[in-house]
């Protein structure tokens, strides 16, 4: 029998297949810690797909497709399970959104968004398997690795 190291939830969302050590960044990116729901996270689970993975569970809250697609920045292989009455009623895989809004600070310190309060917006550009993001304001293009360092941390 499989041992569950993070307790199961009755209602809410389970985000699985997060690359190991990215669970906290994901919680931060979605602002899950600020919304009042109970959030649990496990890290460094064994995974066939990823080697090691993190899992995040959010109680009594179902993420919308728009929300969970934002996760693709740090967990492009993640799966989202919507749980109702302890049953997995829907399972999604992540789709790359056309743009990311509000969740990243622009790495360009000369960008207007770093100088006055303003929601950021980045357009996603896929080239083969590599993702880069273009700032709506300063138009600079950043590779995914650089952007990851600009997600506000917990």
């Amino acid at each position: 029998m499989r041992a569950y190291k993070v307790y199961s939830i009755e209602n809410g969302t389970v985000i699985d297949h997060i690359p190991a050590e990215n669970g906290l960044a994901l919680i931060s990116l979605l602002g899950l810690h600020r919304r009042g729901s109970v959030v649990t996270m496990g890290t460094n689970f064994a995974s066939k797909k990823l080697g090691k993975k993190d899992i995040v569970k959010i109680e009594n809250r179902e993420l919308t497709p728009d929300e969970f697609n934002q996760v693709s920045l740090i967990a492009p292989m993640a799966t989202i399970n919507i749980i109702r009455a302890s049953k997995n009623i829907k399972k999604y895989t992540i789709a790359m959104p056309a743009f990311f809004e509000r969740i990243i600070k622009c790495p360009n310190h000369k960008c207007i968004t770093n100088s006055e309060a303003c929601a950021t917006k980045f357009y996603s550009q896929m080239k083969g398997k590599s993702l880069s993001l273009r700032c709506h304001y300063c138009e600079k293009v950043f590779p995914q690795d650089e952007i990851k360092n600009h997600i506000p941390r917990l």
Partner: peptide, 10 residues
């Protein structure tokens, strides 16, 4: 004209 990038868009 503005010294910050993205200022015109804003």
């Amino acid at each position: 004209r503005h010294p910050l990038e993205g200022a015109a868009r804003r």
